[in-house]
Structure formats: C-alpha cells, structure tokens
Design a protein around this nucleic acid. Structure first.
Lengths: 125, 125
DNA sequence: ATTATATGAAACCTTTTGGTTTCATGTCAA
DNA sequence: TTGACATGAAACCAAAAGGTTTCATATAAT
C-alpha cells in the first residue's frame, strides 16, 4: 500500500530497473516477454520486477500461466517531491538546462536565488 | 566534469547521502561539522561525501586543515529529466498529488493523458 | 618545538545486491 | 494423459556497499 517495502530511490537506482519501467510503461507484459529485452536471465528479471513491485512501481496480475506486469507511476511522486525541494537552485545560471529539461514549455516560477555563504558555519536542525 | 564517476541515481539511493545534501544545501561545511549530524563515524561520512563528489553533487574545497563541502545542484537535472518523461502519467487521477508536489504554483502544461489498463483499480489516496 | 585538530587512506568486516543454475508447480495444448 | 510452457522459490556465488578502527600526514595553536 502506502508503506512500500522498498524505497523508490533504491528501486530506481539500478539501471536495469529503470529500463524495465520504460519498457512496460505503456502496456502490460508477461515476464518472459519482458526478459527477452535484457541480456540477463529470466529469473534475474523476475527478481527486479519483484523489487519494483515492492516499491509500488509496478503491479502484477496473473493471467493463466503467466504473470503480467504493468507500470504504476504513483511512487514517483515521492521522487518528484524530493526534487521539488531543490527547485530554488535552478535559477539563472542553470535556467538554460532547466528549460531543456522542462520540455513541456511551462516556465519556472521565479524563486529567491540562493547565495553562497563563504564564512558561515552556522548549523541548524 | 560532465562524466561523473558515480551515477546520480546511485548517489541519492542512500538515505544518509540524501540527508547530507539537505544539510549542506545552503552553506559550505567542513567534514567534522557535518559528521556531527550523523550517528555514524566521521570516516563513514567522509566516504559518503566522496561518493557525492564523484556524482558531481557536491564540491570540495580545502581551507587550511579542513575540507569544506558545498552542494552542487546540476546533476539533479538528469533526475529531473528522467522524471519528466513520466509527466504524461500524472493526469486527472493524480492531479491532486501532483499539485501538492508542484508547490511552486506553476501549473503543468496539459499533456495527453495516459490511459491505464482496462482493469484499472481505485487508487488509494 | 610540542601538542592538538582535521582529514583521508588502508585494511578489514558484514550485509546487501545482482546474478546464476536447478527444481517444483501450475497451466495450456495435443 | 502427456508433454511443453511460464514462473517463482531455493541454494548458491562474487562483488559492491556501508560501516569500523587504526594510522599517517598536514595544519593550527600554545
């Protein structure tokens, strides 16, 4: 449910799992069909899918003798939220890159740009 | 420079490293000062900082006998780009969460909504 | 000059990760 | 009913990850 056994950051850390998500993001697929796209064993792919499922990023459905997986986007919102915290850093200097990234055309809301503190050693909680 | 020795996905997979970034994101800090915020050894913190540096997420600067680290946001753009690919999934059904996430007020540009499988189930909040 | 501080490298250890092969079981096709 | 297909569990393995302690070195302070 909302208490995933696997952290989404952990789940997407592996490049194979990222490819897995991209592969099935527009259609449900069975394990063998999926594993055909990877140079590792079907069993290994199956384990990756299990990890993704534990993170809530895919859902499995049994159909006859196969197990089909489909993509679930919801857990990515945690990532998005985490990333959103850093939005204030994408100011002038990185705006060009930012624009490239935000290819949907929505402009960024101007945020107070951060300044570099040189001598400040304050700590906070 | 643009060829990080450590993948950004890998770098942020560890919760300690994520906290590390949040700790120093507004000021430069020396290793010992940083490690005071964590229950692990200074050496362990130092290794995490090294990994973050290898991913380009922090930069180090030697000042006298200390090594100070500061946050470097740029590599997070790769993450942002990766996530942006999935923007089309955040349509109606997840728009509430999406709005919560995009707390800066910039509305998303309407994108072709992605349809889920026919057996689509209710999404828990 | 001597001592204290700040740090990284090294060696080492344990757990996790990503992979394999083998095997048992359930389901579909003849 | 017999055999092929689809899959996961198990046992196993090597390498990576995350941590520790110890030690050497550079810089600062007395």
């Amino acid at each position: 449910m909302t208490s995933p056994k696997v952290d989404v950051f952990q789940a997407i850390a592996d490049p194979t799992r990222r490819k897995l998500l991209r592969l099935i993001d527009d259609r449900e697929m069975a394990v063998t069909a999926i594993s055909g796209h990877f140079p590792i064993s079907r069993t290994a792919v199956s384990k990756h899918l299990r990890i993704l499922a534990d993170a809530g990023l895919v859902k499995e459905r049994k159909v006859g003798r196969e197990t089909r997986y489909r993509f679930e986007p919801e857990p990515l919102l945690e990532l998005k939220r985490w990333l959103a915290y850093f939005d204030r850093f994408w100011d002038n200097k990185l705006s060009v890159l930012q624009h490239y990234v935000e290819s949907d055309g929505s402009a960024s809301t101007p945020s107070p740009a951060r300044l570099q503190a040189s001598t400040d050693k304050e700590k906070k909680e």
